[in-house]
Structure formats: structure tokens, C-alpha cells
Amino acid sequence: MAREFHRADRVADAMRRELAQLIQQEVRDPRLGMVNINDVAVSRDLTVAKVFVTFVGEDDPSQINTSMKVLNKAAGFLRRLLAHAIQMRAIPRLQFHYDETSVRGQELSTLIDKAVLADRKHRDDNSDAGED
């Protein structure tokens, strides 16, 4: 059976595509670097859109905080530009959120790599001790 797509899902997808272009081309704040839009979650009543973003090459929490403030201040401007790009009666209010899933994924990947290396070293030590 085909998956049923709700209007909120279609709106979220269109907003994600448009916002990626608009932020890159229209937001000219020097404090804002490269922005990746990971996801857009639109409420069922289409009044609020949560935009989950990450920043390319940004690890400093103070810089991330500054970039988030810039995006949230530009939310009204971006909403107006979205209204011109997407033909809808009302454009959802934008709320930008920092998406920590990629950072957390990298941390977990590093921990797994360390555990595998420690296990391999432990096996090598045990096999060397068994040969004597």
C-alpha cells in the first residue's frame, strides 16, 4: 500500500528546499557561515515550522549560538521570501533549532572505533600469551 503523504510533509519538503537556497543567497550576515538544513518539521495546522540546522566547520559553541541568533532574527525576513516562493495562503512561522544528531553520531562513532581497537588489542595480547 502506498504511503500517504500529508500536506504538512509536502510543505516541509518545499520549505526545506527553498530555505536552503534563500539562506545561501539572501542572508548576508558575516557572522553566519555555511548552513545545512537537516530537516523541517511543520505542525499539522501549518502554523509553525521547526527548522533543524547544522553549521559546516563550526565546533565552537559560542559561534554556533551566534549563528542561531542570526537565523532566528532573520526568520521574519525568510518567511516573507518564502511567501513569494511558495504559493500558500499562510506561511508557517519559522523557528530555527540546532540539530545535534550529527555531532552526537560522530561522538558515538568515535567511541565505537575506540572499543573495537581496544577489543582487537585485547585479542592480540591474549593470542600472544597463548603461544608462549
Rank of each mutant, 00 (worst) to 15 (best):
residue 132 D to F: 11
residue 41 A to G: 05
residue 66 T to R: 10
residue 67 S to E: 03
residue 112 I to S: 05
residue 108 L to F: 06
residue 81 L to D: 04
residue 61 P to K: 07
residue 80 R to M: 07
residue 48 V to I: 13
residue 103 V to K: 09
residue 130 G to E: 15
residue 125 D to W: 05
residue 19 L to C: 06
residue 2 A to C: 03
residue 121 K to Y: 09
residue 49 A to L: 00
residue 90 A to Q: 13
residue 16 R to C: 02
residue 128 D to S: 14
residue 114 K to P: 00
residue 34 M to H: 00
residue 28 R to W: 00
residue 35 V to H: 00
residue 26 E to Y: 04
residue 79 R to K: 14
residue 120 R to N: 13
residue 30 P to C: 03
residue 107 E to R: 05
residue 43 S to H: 06
residue 46 L to T: 07
residue 87 Q to D: 14
residue 67 S to Q: 12
residue 29 D to Y: 10
residue 23 I to L: 02
residue 33 G to C: 01
residue 12 A to G: 10
residue 73 K to R: 15
residue 125 D to I: 05
residue 28 R to Q: 07
residue 119 D to K: 11
residue 56 V to M: 03
residue 102 S to E: 08
residue 34 M to P: 00
residue 74 A to Y: 04
residue 64 I to A: 11
residue 131 E to T: 08
residue 102 S to V: 11
residue 108 L to Q: 06
residue 15 M to L: 12
residue 47 T to S: 09
residue 126 N to D: 13
residue 56 V to R: 00
residue 38 N to Q: 05
residue 104 R to T: 12
residue 66 T to A: 08
residue 72 N to F: 13
residue 63 Q to G: 03
residue 118 A to H: 08
residue 86 I to P: 06
residue 39 D to G: 04
residue 11 V to K: 13
residue 116 V to H: 07
residue 7 R to E: 15
residue 95 Q to V: 12
residue 109 S to M: 07
residue 3 R to H: 15
residue 131 E to R: 12
residue 73 K to W: 12
residue 37 I to Y: 00
residue 44 R to E: 10
residue 114 K to L: 10
residue 95 Q to M: 12
residue 28 R to H: 05
residue 45 D to I: 02
residue 106 Q to W: 08
residue 2 A to I: 03
residue 92 P to A: 08
residue 103 V to F: 08
residue 47 T to W: 03
residue 20 A to P: 06
residue 17 R to C: 01
residue 113 D to T: 11
residue 43 S to T: 13
residue 75 A to T: 07
residue 107 E to G: 01
residue 60 D to R: 06
residue 44 R to W: 07
residue 129 A to G: 08
residue 114 K to A: 13
residue 18 E to H: 09
residue 13 D to V: 10
